[in-house]
Amino acid sequence: MSSESPVVFVVDDDRAFRDALRRLLTSVGLSVEVFPSAQAFLSNPRRHAPGCLVLDVRLPGLSGLDLQQELANTDTTLPIIFLTGHGDIPMSVRAMKAGAVEFLTKPFREQDLLDAIRHAIDRDRVARTERLELAELRRRYDLLTPRERDVMGATVAGLLNKQIAGQLGTSEATVKEQRGHVMQKMQAGSLADLVRSASRLGITPAGSGPTPPR
């Protein structure tokens, strides 16, 4: 979990609106950063901070939808709330399909925007937590020897030690010892814990020698 406080990034080419939005969000205690264009936002190094992005659909140069695409192509997973002057259905469908949190039409109800921002920040927090947990699991999995990985795969598939020994051509005692190492390295308190970790790593129980996707 990151200790950084969330930031609301606002990209809108209308200065008056941009400033009003900054004042509104500041007044409810959010920290805000505003940008006049997609390019200005992209060149800002702080865009990797946790939070969300409030984005005008129409922008000079790179449009809001273009920016959404651009961010999806990089590793930035900032949730996006779109704002538009007039509701254009195909445009909003496209934005939502591409993962937008919300699509609001100006002038919007204050509560709708604040709710959307809270929702987006929560979503970003959960997503970031999940990403950190997965990274930790992967680090643990990387500590396993190839034979231990085989044993883990067979174990989460529900095979008994004896069956595993037969499959790997070794003794039951050896399998038992290796299984102990796996439980220890993966910091699994129970078989159920281990199965959950395997599933999050994408290890399918059936195959032998599975490769978790990275």
Binding site: D14, F17, A20, S27, G85, K106
Partner: peptide, 21 residues
């Protein structure tokens, strides 16, 4: 409509900010 919405949206946001403060 956009031209009018823009200042209108800003007015609403500022009014709400004032209420919060």
């Amino acid at each position: 409509a956009h031209e009018i919405n823009q200042p209108l949206a800003a007015i609403i946001a500022d009014a709400n900010a004032c209420l919060h403060w």
